[in-house]
């Protein structure tokens, strides 16, 4: 794979890689660092990349593994990732603010999901991947993915209605 191939095939994935990294690592800075490191790794492996049939699935799998490793090492060091990009939830005066507020609730709820479910929701509902593509990334069969997805969607909505009726409103 030449340099221009890399720029045309792999570089457009940078937003998807970044969003998946941010989903798992939460902090924007962490996700940016992770994305940079993942692309350096992909770049160093670009000779082998041509052999892979599905470069997108390969890149996303690598992202998933990289972020999970990073989370594991953070836990091992007993360190918490510092989130600096939380929004202030106190001002909910206008409707627009309110909508944004409930959207940040979705993001908070999703943080509490198991990592596997976070990845599946991210790939399906945000990036719009087919089940067959998700199967390659998370290494699960399609039925298991559907079950996890259904569980995740129900959890999010349940917690969302909960906060809507008791939390904010």
């Amino acid at each position: 794979m030449t340099q221009s191939d890399f720029v045309h095939i792999v570089m457009p994935l940078k937003d998807k890689v970044f969003r998946l990294a941010k989903r798992l690592l939460v902090s924007r800075e962490e996700a940016e660092d992770a994305t940079q490191e993942i692309f350096v790794k992909l770049w160093n492996n670009k000779q082998k990349m041509a052999e892979y049939k599905n470069i997108e699935a390969f890149s996303m799998t690598m992202t998933k593994n990289f972020c999970l490793d990073r989370l594991k090492s953070k836990q091992a060091q007993n360190l918490k990732i510092v989130h600096s990009n939380y929004q202030d939830h106190n001002v909910a005066l206008q409707r627009e603010v309110e909508v944004r507020d409930s959207m940040s609730w979705v993001s908070k709820i999703m943080e509490e999901l198991p990592e596997q479910q976070q990845i599946i929701i991210q790939l399906r509902d945000i990036e719009g991947y087919e089940f067959s593509e998700i199967a390659k990334v998370v290494d699960m069969n399609e039925t298991a993915i559907r079950v996890a997805l259904s569980r995740a969607r129900k959890t999010i909505r349940e917690k969302l209605t909960h906060t809507h009726s008791y939390g904010i409103k």
Partner: peptide, 14 residues
């Protein structure tokens, strides 16, 4: 709220 969140999140760029 969910679908709007998904839509908004997809706009985020590196």
């Amino acid at each position: 709220v969910m679908f709007q969140y998904f839509d908004a999140t997809k706009q985020e760029q590196f």
